Amino acid sequence: MRFNLLGPLEAFSDDDPVGLGGFNQRAIAGFLLLRANEVVPTSKLVHALWGYDTPATSRKMVQNAVSGLRKIIERHAETAGAVTLTTTAPGYRMTVADGNLDLWNFRRLVELGRADLAAGREESGLGKLYSALQLWRGPVLADLAETGVAWPELSAVAGMRMSVFEDYAQEALNRGRHHEILGELEQMATAEPAGERMCGLLMVALYRCGRQHDALAAYRRTRAALLDDFGLDPGHELRGLEVAVLHHDASLALDAEPERRRTIPGPVGVRRCERITAGRGATARRSQTLMHRRHS
């Protein structure tokens, strides 16, 4: 069997889709696959399904869901490969063969692509990052997230996707592909309105496409999002980029010398928001507990 997490949860036996059952079974499968080949304590599974307000029979419901998943895997034993679901104290482990999980394939392509970029093989690196991003079919475990699931692991994987896209977009801009990347940048910036690096990349692409006013509007949107969501002003790199766009600074040109090119805000500018985001996510998860209980 093989599994896809980068979008709605999917399972396949050969090329045939495999149903994983109701919400509890799908949620447990998704959580175990996020930690594939690791032992996940039963207490973590209980918390993942019901948060801080667990029903008295929560452990029994986890046992029942695991039993149902195990039967599905055994039913497809001939094509399951090395996929197993075992009871291993203090919880359970989903073992998946290499290459049978799209999240692993994504990470492998990203590692190879970044290695190529670091070694100066820009075209090969760009192609591998693009292939990695093409594995995504929507938000990670989108069907579970739609029901109110808000695990920290989902945010971590989504953040990984955003970082990879930013690296890909940066390299595409370095190679003069601002027209090609603009549409994707606009979509990703809409999904991450407070992302300073994403905003900077979008501003440069817009500017090089002759859309100075739109580049400045993108800055204003991100500044408003940072103030509304976190009470922060943009970092000095992004503020400097706004000034450069206003004055048609030569550092924004594609043919500018590498050492004179305008610095696009990097991950540091985003990380200063992550602590606040994490705290807000925890509050949201607590408020969703009652919503999760309907699946019990």
Rank of each mutant, 00 (worst) to 15 (best):
Y92I: 04
T147Y: 05
T84W: 01
A97T: 06
M162I: 07
K60D: 08
K60L: 14
E186W: 06
L226M: 11
S58W: 12
A158G: 09
G68A: 13
T42A: 10
G269Q: 04
G235K: 10
A119F: 11
L103P: 02
G269N: 05
R261A: 01
M1P: 14
R2S: 11
V204S: 10
K44D: 11
L201F: 03
C199K: 03
A244Y: 01
V268A: 15
V18G: 09
P267L: 09
R271C: 01
M203T: 03
G235R: 12
R208N: 11
Q288T: 09
T57S: 11
Y92G: 07
N37D: 13
I72V: 15
M198V: 07
E171W: 10
N100W: 00
V96W: 00
L20I: 07
T79P: 05
A278Y: 09
G195Y: 02
V157S: 03
P41L: 13
E166L: 10
R35C: 00
G7S: 07
M94L: 15
A48D: 02
W151E: 04
Q288W: 08
I264P: 07
Q25G: 01
N174M: 11
V157A: 06
G159K: 02
E274F: 09
A142N: 05
A65M: 08
P90Y: 14
T87A: 14
L112C: 05
A89F: 08
Y92S: 07
S287F: 01
R223E: 14
A36M: 05
T42M: 09
